[in-house]
Design a protein around this nucleic acid. Structure first.
Lengths: 217, 217
DNA sequence: GTCTATAAATAGATAGAC
DNA sequence: GTCTATCTATTTATAGAC
């Protein structure tokens, strides 16, 4: 059980500059750039200014390290949207807040959008029970907001999963495609990288609300 | 130059049951499931009922095989949207046609959505000039439709890249996440896999049009 | 906790027969 | 065109010293 949590309870896991925290940070970058299979433990160790053996001191193996990052990522998103939805704003403001929450999390953890895309492509093969629970919690929060809006007569009863796709699809696409857009730009596809983050978020907020308020058909 | 095209000109590359076509089909499945780094040439060969050596007879190496699949994929999408946009439908119908074209291509090439997601996460590191040109062609077609609609006074001048994200993000998310939704369903997240393809496509068509017709803010 | 050295396995690529 | 056998490099993971 050497991979069990060693930090004192209540202590931030990743913020502290422990070797474990540095490994997690380096691994997040590596997994985001190369995927689980393409990630190289030697590179992760070097990125953390340590050596490979330290990875196996703190984690059971590469997959264990990866799963820890997935749990952290989705746990953070779930916590953020849950906190947001606990406010006494109306449903429309909460939909905006939901979009904003995902975007803020992508700011705080830039590895989140690419890793999420890769995990989708993998069919979720690395998700453990805790992570699945976080994801389902995120969906439940959104479904609750929609339900609230419907009850208040402000929203049409659109399927929460359709709303979710309309928010998360474009949002992750934007945050995950920074490198690609730069590349396209250099290849002469103009305007691909000239894009304001806030403008994208605001657009997605408007579209999500428009969908829910039935201004679509 | 042993990887040069061997098929007679005008012959379908993938449909024929040649060893090369079988390798391409097996490789597409393998790359979609495991990504470039995670793909295994031995598995690809077995999937094509051949052996590893045949891969190196037809292709220079694993990367060459992968790039060929990318070119085929994006070439097919570009061809389809270009053909669609050449019709004399109005701009609204063409926006619907654009969404439909992407969806039809995802039906025809199920490896397309996951591979596209992975390539985004990779920052487009495997895209060669031909593939970049296909992608930029797809964007140009969409920009043209938007321009047409604006000129006809039917659309607001929304950035084509925002429209593109609003279409392609949710659409790829839906098509790429079949496996994950099934997994979530089995984990007790109800309704994740109970979804009609046509209903999703219709929803995305409505949202895209709503965006362009200015029914959002 | 941290390191060096190394074992062990995987997997991309090639040689050469048929 | 297709195969078997093999070479070689990479890389995950561990042993064991400090």
């Amino acid at each position: 059980m050497k991979s069990a949590r060693r930090q004192p309870v209540g202590r931030k896991l990743v913020d502290a500059d422990t070797s474990r925290a540095r490994l997690l940070a380096a691994a997040a970058t590596e997994f985001a750039s190369h995927g689980f299979a393409g990630a190289n433990v030697e590179r992760i160790a070097r990125g953390a200014r340590l050596n490979k053996a330290m990875i196996y001191y703190h984690f059971k193996d590469k997959a264990d390290l990866y799963r820890e990052i997935l749990r952290d990522m989705f746990g953070a998103v779930e916590a953020r949207v849950t906190r947001m939805a606990a406010s006494d704003d109306g449903p429309a403001a909460k939909i905006r807040g939901f979009v904003e929450a995902i975007a803020l999390e992508a700011d705080a953890r830039p590895h989140f959008p690419p890793i999420w895309f890769r995990e989708i492509a993998d069919g979720g093969s690395h998700l453990d029970a805790a992570t699945v629970s976080h994801i389902s919690g995120i969906l439940r929060v959104l479904a609750g907001i929609v339900q609230e809006g419907v009850a208040a007569g402000q929203f049409k009863p659109v399927s929460p999963l359709l709303v979710h796709g309309g928010i998360v699809g474009p949002l992750l696409l934007y945050f995950a495609s920074g490198g690609l857009r730069l590349r396209m730009d250099r290849a002469g596809v103009s305007g691909a990288s000239g894009f304001q983050r806030d403008e994208v978020v605001a657009h997605i907020q408007r579209v999500a609300l428009g969908t829910l308020e039935g201004r679509m058909s």
